[in-house]
Nucleic acid binder design. Sequence first.
DNA 1: GGACTAAGCTTGTCTATACAAATCGACCGG
DNA 2: CCGGTCGATTTGTATAGACAAGCTTAGTCC
Lengths: 231, 231
Amino acid sequence: MSTPAYQQIKDYVLAAIHAGEWREGDQIPSENELVRRFGVARMTVNRAIRELAAEGVLTRSQGAGTFVAATKYQSTLIEIKSIADEIRARGHIHSAEVLKLQAVKADAALAAEMAVALGSKLFHSLILHYENGVPIQLEDRWVNPTLAPDYLGQDYTRSTPNEYLMRAAPLARVEYRIEASRPDRTARAKLAMERDEPCLVLHRRTFSAGQVASMVRLYHPAGRYQFSGHF
Amino acid sequence: MSTPAYQQIKDYVLAAIHAGEWREGDQIPSENELVRRFGVARMTVNRAIRELAAEGVLTRSQGAGTFVAATKYQSTLIEIKSIADEIRARGHIHSAEVLKLQAVKADAALAAEMAVALGSKLFHSLILHYENGVPIQLEDRWVNPTLAPDYLGQDYTRSTPNEYLMRAAPLARVEYRIEASRPDRTARAKLAMERDEPCLVLHRRTFSAGQVASMVRLYHPAGRYQFSGHF
DNA sequence: GGACTAAGCTTGTCTATACAAATCGACCGG
DNA sequence: CCGGTCGATTTGTATAGACAAGCTTAGTCC
C-alpha cells in the first residue's frame, strides 16, 4: 500500500469527524477496537491517534478513553496559514463576505506604513470571515499593486487574499504586532460584538522583494479566537 | 525515571541546539548512534526525533540523515526575557514592586497546568513593573520549586524573575497563548486601568528538563504596551 | 576521466509483546 | 443507601526485531 497505515487511520478518524459521525466530546473507538477494525498492530493505531491528539483534534485520558476535542482556535503567528484552511481543518464551513474591494490613493499615514509615495495607488479590501455562519475575523487589508496587480480581480468568497498573495508575492519577511483594542462602531457591528467586549488585533506587514507587499489588520473577538503556539 | 525516555532524548537534542553545540544545518547523530548513547530501543529514539521534526526543530531526509532546521522565525515572544532590559533600552527607568512572593499549595487547576501533583508546593509571585513610574506590566507567576529552589530568596526589585529563571532552569520549550481580556478588579487597580480598557494577556509556560518550570501571565494595558516582532 | 554498480548507511514503517498507570463500573459488606 | 474493593478496560510507554526505501560513497568497468 502506498499511504502508510497510520495515515489511513488518521484519515479515517478525520473523515468520521468531518462527516459529523463523531461529534465534539464523543468518545471514539478504543485502540484495541481500531486494531480489530484495521487489522494492524496496536502501536500503529497508537501513533495515528497520538498524532491527532498532538494536533489538537482529539483529547486523550489514560484509563478513560479518547474523545473528539472541543474546537479551539490555535493560530501560530508564525505560520501564516489561511483562516479558511484552519476552519476547514476543523471540519467546519468557512464563508466570506467581501465588504470592500477597491483601489485607493495612499494618504500620508498609509503611504508611510506601506513605504510607498504619497498618493500612490493601493488596493484595499475589507473581508468578513465566518465559521459556520458565525463571524470570526474581520480582515482589513492594503496591498501593493506592483507586487499583486491582479488583486482586485480575485473572487475572495472562494479563496482568501492570503492564499492569492502567497502565490503572487512569496514573502521574505514578516512583521507583526498584537494589540488589544476596542474596535470602532462598524467593525463591532460586523463582528456582532458587545459594546465592551475585548478584541485582539493582529497587525501584520509582509515584505516581498524588498517592498511592503501587504499590510493587514485582523480583528478577533476575544472569546472566539486566541493565538497560541509553541516552540 | 519519571520523565519518559523519549522526552529525555528530546530535551537532550534541544539542549544541544540551544547551547550552540549543533548549529543550523548541522547533521545530528543518527538514530542508531543515539540508541547506543542512550541505551534504548530505536523506536524510542525514532519517536523523539520524529516529534522534533514535526515541531519544526529538525528536518529529516530518508537515506541522508537528520539536520538542525533553519530557524524560520524570531519572535519577541521568547525574547521578552526581561522587561527591565526592554525599558532600559528605551532609555527609561525600570522599577518593580513585589506584591506577593510566597510558597503555596497547588489546587487542582494549578496542579494540572504546572503538571505537578495536587497539593505540591509551588512558588507564587506577583510583581508590578513600572516604566518611569507608570505601571506597565503585571506579572503573575508560578514556579516549580524543584527547578528553582532559591526562587523566593531573590531580590526582584533588582533583577527580574525571568533573569533568575533563565540561569536556574535553561528552557527547553515554550508554550504561549495571547488573549484579550478584561482583568479583574485588583489587577485593574494595580495597573491604574479604566473600567473598560482592553488588556492583553500573554500566557506562557516554559519547560525545562521535561517539567513545567514556570507559568506566567503578563497583563498589559493595551495603550501602554504591545507585542511586536519580526521573522 | 566518466559512467555505472553495489555496499552500507540512513530514515520510514510495522509487528507482537509487555508492563505500568489511570479510570470506571460492578459487586459486596455494612 | 453508602462506601470500599477489585477487576476489566483504556491509554502510555518501551522493547527487539524486521523489511522497505532513499542517499552516499567507494569501487569497478569502460
